[in-house]
Simulated scan of single mutants.
Amino acid sequence: MSSFVDEFQANLEALPNILQKKYSLLRDLDKSLQEIQRQNEQRCEQEIEDIKQGVKAGNITPNTSLIRFSDEALDEQKHSIRIADEKMALAVQAYDFVDAHIQQLDQFLKLCDEDNRRERDTAAPALLASSLDGNTKSGRGSESGRGGRKKTRLIAAEEATETEVAVATTTGNPTGTQLDLPVDPNEPTYCFCNQVSYGDMIACDNPDCKIEWFHFGCVGLKEKVKGKWYCSDCASLKNRRRGR
């Protein structure tokens, strides 16, 4: 975990400089492209005017199949296309680079969540045992007989269970966007938090979405979205395909 955090932090610190270089190159390419396009437009306008004058003077046959731009004008147009392709490739590289950092951040958050779960699972049995022991001992002094002892143990067990759930919820969910609910092994789980269904949920409109359903709080929603909605993973994949 420590090595992963160090690597993630190092990559994150290098991100601004790398993106700045790519954006600077994009600006240079765009400046060159605009200059070539301006020159090409002037050249083509002049050649069109020369052709018109040649047709009027009878020096050029007015046959559109034989009239064409000069090789210089065509070369400028081809060069413009090459620069535009370079700009597109550079933009895709920048997008993929940021997307890779986002995926690494998701992995980092997942590891943190797993560590928190292991800590809660380790602390919960000790808390339950301590609560049961304390409540049972205090109950024996005030109640007598089998009925009183049985009642004391039952109340202590219920109070300890309530305390365990309250502590787990407070520790694992400081923002209120994720509930630490006891999960039935046979009950399906959903969302980025990998919890069971509860409260308001929304479905991703990507039919191939691996998760499908999400809790409002986990995706930052307060009310139902009008129209189609995509989770962050599917939205990133969709934008990447559209960019290419």
Rank of each mutant, 00 (worst) to 15 (best):
A14N: 07
Q46G: 03
R43F: 09
K31S: 14
I18L: 04
G58Y: 15
D6G: 02
Q34Y: 07
D30L: 10
I18W: 02
E49D: 04
V55P: 00
S32K: 15
N11P: 00
L29Y: 13
Q39E: 06
Q34H: 10
N17P: 00
L15Y: 05
K56T: 12
D30S: 14
E13M: 05
L29I: 12
Q42F: 04
L29C: 14
I18H: 03
Q9M: 11
Q46K: 11
E7Y: 12
A57I: 01
E35M: 10
E49Q: 08
E13A: 08
D50Q: 13
A57L: 14
M1E: 13
Q53W: 03
Q53E: 06
D28V: 14
E35Y: 15
E7L: 08
I48V: 12
L25G: 09
I18S: 00
L19A: 03
K22T: 09
K31M: 10
E47P: 01
Y23I: 07
D50Y: 05
V5Y: 02
L12Y: 05
M1G: 12
D6T: 15
V55T: 05
L15A: 07
D30W: 11
S32Q: 15
E49R: 06
E45R: 13
S3C: 05
D28Y: 10
Q46S: 11
K52L: 08
